[in-house]
Design a protein around this nucleic acid. Structure first.
Lengths: 219, 219
DNA sequence: AAATAAATTTAGACAAATCTAAAAATAATT
DNA sequence: AATTATTTTTAGATTTGTCTAAATTTATTT
């Protein structure tokens, strides 16, 4: 289905609001999209005529199966781009949302699937949200601080809780990046420091404080 | 300057036509953009009022300094994305134009400069066209077949003349990609084969036929 | 140079996405 | 339950980018 940029934004927003409420209402969507309620009603009519949502006047609305599928495609694109911007271009995760908001509308499936493969088919974006796979499937993986990762367990670095210059410098030095494969080899009770191994990098030791601020998910 | 997607497309097209003709005329731009002459006139008025071009009714038009600068920014984005799609995602260069056409409108300077750095500040895109630098400067480098590259001269792989599966497979095997740093160590007169070195890869030998189809530019 | 052809512009209309202000429907309160 | 408040929708306008058809200007030919 070919959707305009605007239609895509509405669908994505409705999807995001639906996570919290059963039915979405005009006003909350208007607030969310920073637009007027009248514009929402206008677009709802359009999306209804395109059979992307259930909509009964004055009674709220909800994406149907088709709408949901479309939303997941858009969200997949958004989150893959966010991952790219952080993991490959080294941008700070506070900054990537707005750019991904634009990139997400480029909808070539070949582009997105190649990007996905290039990034190593990540499951979680830098904000900790799951990335739907090509078929729209979302795997709910819980992240945890590296310090809680079981010994010798393979995991993937999903995010870091602080992006201060100092932390980034250190992560960079050890070759720890978003999406890196990581494993804890030894934990030192004394100060909570960990001996770790990043795939294709030499082993190293990081402090307990660092281990608390690096988030991973099981692989 | 904030430009709409449509304005950007017009400016870029005018720039591209200007390379060939001194003054651009309404009809040729209409053909180029696959739109009606009337639409061209409409947009010309707008671009003139935004002071992006010189336009005298019935006498053709031309980008001014500001318009040129904007065009170069758009073209820079377009060509960097093309490079990315080919060099990083492994897409065939016949396919990348249309996707870059969409990506080019995402205009965050930080994004583009980081992308540029990530790609190794390439000077030529996969179609052989120059990539303007951050200040809009275009370096005109001529490409040549690898077989004509002087011995021990450092060069950058800019494109390959065929993208058949067989050739791509071979290039892949040797780690030769768009943007790779390359050097010829020895040339064998007998069959034109070359001993080469790709940065961070082991030395290897390629056939004279391959050496004729790989294009490079001096570094 | 007058007539014809070609190119360009204007006039008026349309679709998409938005807005404001007014009307209608639903929800909350006394 | 009647009134008031809130939410939602409608009506009508606006902006952007486009179109067709007609009018105008420039170019070409006889």
């Amino acid at each position: 289905m070919k959707l305009s940029e605007s239609e895509e934004n509405y669908i994505k927003s409705i999807y995001n609001l639906q996570v919290k409420t059963e039915k979405v209402n005009t006003n909350s969507l208007a607030v969310f999209l920073n637009t007027s309620p009248a514009s929402i009603t206008d677009m709802l009519k359009k999306l209804k005529s395109k059979k992307l949502l259930e909509y009964k006047k004055y009674y709220g609305f909800r994406l149907n199966e088709t709408g949901n599928t479309e939303a997941l495609k858009i969200i997949r694109r958004h989150r893959l781009w966010e991952f790219f911007l952080v993991a490959k271009l080294g941008m700070e995760w506070e900054k990537v949302h707005d750019i991904a908001e634009e990139l997400e509308h480029v909808s070539s499936p070949e582009l997105i699937n190649r990007l996905d493969a290039y990034l190593g088919k990540p499951k979680i974006d830098p904000h900790g949200d799951p990335i739907p796979d090509e078929r729209g499937k979302v795997v709910l993986l819980k992240q945890k601080p590296l310090k809680d990762l079981a010994m010798k367990q393979n995991a993937i670095v999903s995010s870091v809780s602080s992006q201060g210059h100092e932390m980034m410098e250190m992560l960079n030095h050890y070759g720890i990046g978003i999406g890196s494969q990581i494993k804890v080899l030894k934990s030192f009770e004394f100060d909570g420091s960990l001996q770790i191994k990043i795939a294709r990098k030499p082993e190293c030791i990081i402090s307990g404080m660092a281990a608390q601020n690096i988030y991973v998910y099981d692989n």
